[in-house]
Every structure is written in C-alpha cells, then in structure tokens.
C-alpha cells in the first residue's frame, strides 16, 4: 500500500495492545498492528467480538498504555500528551447507554467545553456559541431544552456526538455508536458522521458491527483480522477478500455483487426464474435462501423447477407461476410460494 503523506495525523506502528496482569504474555489482545488515519477521513474499525476493538480505542485515546510499539497523534507519542492536552485533541463517545435524569441536552453538550473552562466551569460567550452551533449541526435545535432521558436512542446518540463536537477536537472516536439503534437511526448517525468528516474536516474513527452500512459510508476500514490489522478502502476489503476473515463459521459467506452477507445452505437444486426488474432480483434472493441455485437464462435444458413472474408493472398484480409438474400452480406472494416449496422439500424423496 502506498501512503502519500510522510507523517499521518494518527499513526499506530507495530502496536501491541491489551492489559498486562503481572508480566507474561497472556495480557496481549493484539500484537504488532499498524495503521494510519488522515484528516477528514471517516474510518470504520471492523472486527469480530473479542477482537480488541474497544481495547484498541482505549489505547489510542491514551486510557491504557500501549504494551509495545507506538501510537502517534500528529507525530507525537500518545504518552507525551497530558490528559488536558488529549482532551483538546480527541473527543470520545463511549458505547455506554447514559441514563442521566435532571440533565438537559444543552447541559450535556456543554460538557464538551469542560477542557476549556476554569475551575468553576463557567461558560463564556464563545463556549455558549460553540454549544449552540454543535446542537444545530447535529440537528437537535428543537431538543436543546429536553431532558436527556426523554430522548430516543438515536436522538441521544446525536446529543453525545454534539457533545464531542463542542469539544472542538480534530479527532472524534466513537465506540459502537450504532449498536443500540434501529436501522433508520443507524443510517442517520452514519450520515451525520460522514457529513462532519467532510464539512468540518474532522477525522472520525468508529468501531461498528454494521458492515453493510460501513461498506457504503466509510472512507477507510481498519480490519482486525487474525493476521493483524488490514487497512484500506471498504472496496479493497471486498475485492481482496479480507471480509471472509471476519467469520470463522464456514456457513457464512460474503456476496461480492450484493455487498452483503448470507448464510450458506444445503444445495436444493437448480431453479429457473423468468421475469424482470426488482421482482426478479428479490425472487432470486428468496430462492437462494432455500438453497436453490438460480438461473435466468432461457435456453437451458428444462430444470426440475421453473418459475415465471407475471404482472411486474403493478405490485398488486404480481403472480408467481410454478411449473414443476403437469399443471402450473399460481401464487400471489413470495411467502406463499416459499411455504409450498418448503413443504415439498420436506417430503421424503
């Protein structure tokens, strides 16, 4: 891999992480991993559970010391920064679900100004300015006076990101920010983070299990694999087959065309599907789930199973015609078709 800039904003060099108990080798979670991050990049840290994502984030933020190797922020080792200096360099959003009564969104965001205020924590005009800008940028203007405990999970995650924004640091680290969110909130958070990386020039690093979203939205992957840490564009991860390292289970595969994961199933035979558009794609997906290998070519020797889709122009008129025996059977939904096929497959012989 070619790195263009000589000194990256964040660089880990042959870094070993973990918690050393009383000497010995047992405390190592990861050994000899190297990676970099640049200004304005949205980096997704990917790895299976227990691969050391949280430990890596804690090491990067200086909460725990590197066991070996180095972490450098803007060219300087993380250990050479004081806690106060780090607070102006990195802001952190933990994965913990904060439940704090008697705290308004504006109060929570104002926490971001903590490293900049005096011993009494009094907010000056510029601090208040920064708080309200952060609230606005995260789309929480209508929520500023709401209590944090009354927010939905997605709104609270936004508020925590606003807090990180108010800290006005070049780096934002987030530990699984999408873990407890519903699908639409997951996308909203990713979109917000990408926007902040683009427009504010922030370097944003997040750990996540939401691979399919990360594949679309992240600029870079850091992947914790058995070999160490591989980094590259998400598309590199797909093309070079790194994603397969994420799964130790042989039944899980990655569909390079669809950009998604699937469970491998027992082969059930070949099915020929005639049709077009979305109906064809989703019918093929459904049949694949049952274990059929789907073909769409016309001029094949007749397979045991042949399905024709009609009425694609109107979702209400979609029909599936199954030609397996003498008379074709008609189904008005994919569910009905699949139920029938499952029953047939379970019959002995």
């Amino acid at each position: 891999m070619i790195t263009s800039t000589p000194a990256p904003l964040l660089e880990a060099d042959r870094l070993s992480i973990g918690y050393l108990p009383a000497g010995g080798d047992s405390g190592f979670i990861r050994k000899e991993i190297s990676f970099t991050a640049e200004r304005g990049e949205l980096v997704a840290l990917i790895g299976p559970n227990g691969s050391g994502k949280s430990t890596l984030l804690k090491t990067l933020t200086g909460f725990i010391p590197p066991l070996k190797g180095s972490v450098r922020w803007m060219g300087k080792p993380v250990g050479s920064y004081t806690p106060a200096e780090l607070a102006r360099l990195i802001s952190y959003v933990s994965t913990e679900n904060l439940r704090l009564p008697n705290m308004r969104v504006a109060d929570l965001v104002a926490y971001g100004r903590f490293p900049y205020t005096g011993w009494l924590g009094r907010l000056r005009e510029e601090d208040l300015q920064m708080v309200s800008t952060s609230i606005r940028k995260t789309g929480l203007s209508d929520f500023a006076r709401r209590e944090v405990i009354t927010l939905s999970d997605g709104e609270r995650q936004r508020a925590l990101i606003a807090r990180a924004l108010a800290q006005n640091t070049p780096f934002i680290l987030l530990d699984e920010p999408t873990a407890f969110l519903d699908v639409s909130a997951k996308y909203e958070i990713f979109q917000l983070l990408r926007q902040l990386a683009r427009t504010e020039g922030k370097t944003i690093l997040l750990s996540t299990h939401d691979l399919n979203i990360a594949l679309r939205e992240a600029d870079k992957f850091w992947m914790l694999t058995p070999a160490g840490c591989t980094q590259g564009a998400p598309e590199d991860a797909v093309l070079q087959g790194w994603l397969s390292h994420l799964f130790t289970h042989p039944q899980i595969g990655f569909d390079k065309t669809g950009g998604d994961f699937y469970l491998k199933t027992e082969p059930a035979g070949t099915a020929q599907v005639k049709g077009q558009g979305d109906a064809l794609i989703w019918t093929s997906r459904a049949l694949t789930r049952l274990g059929f290998s789907v073909v769409t070519e016309e001029n094949l020797p007749l397979p045991p199973l042949s399905i024709t889709i009609t009425g694609e122009e109107d979702p209400n008129h979609l029909r599936w015609l199954l030609h397996s025996g003498e008379t074709p059977l008609t189904f008005s939904s994919l569910h009905a078709l699949l139920s029938y096929l499952r029953q047939e497959m379970q019959k002995p012989g």
Partner: peptide, 8 residues
C-alpha cells in the same frame, strides 16, 4: 471514561 476524555 468520559471524565478522562474530558481531561480530568
């Protein structure tokens, strides 16, 4: 964790 990240 937050306290630390705020420089305490």
């Amino acid at each position: 964790t937050y306290a630390r990240s705020l420089g305490v």
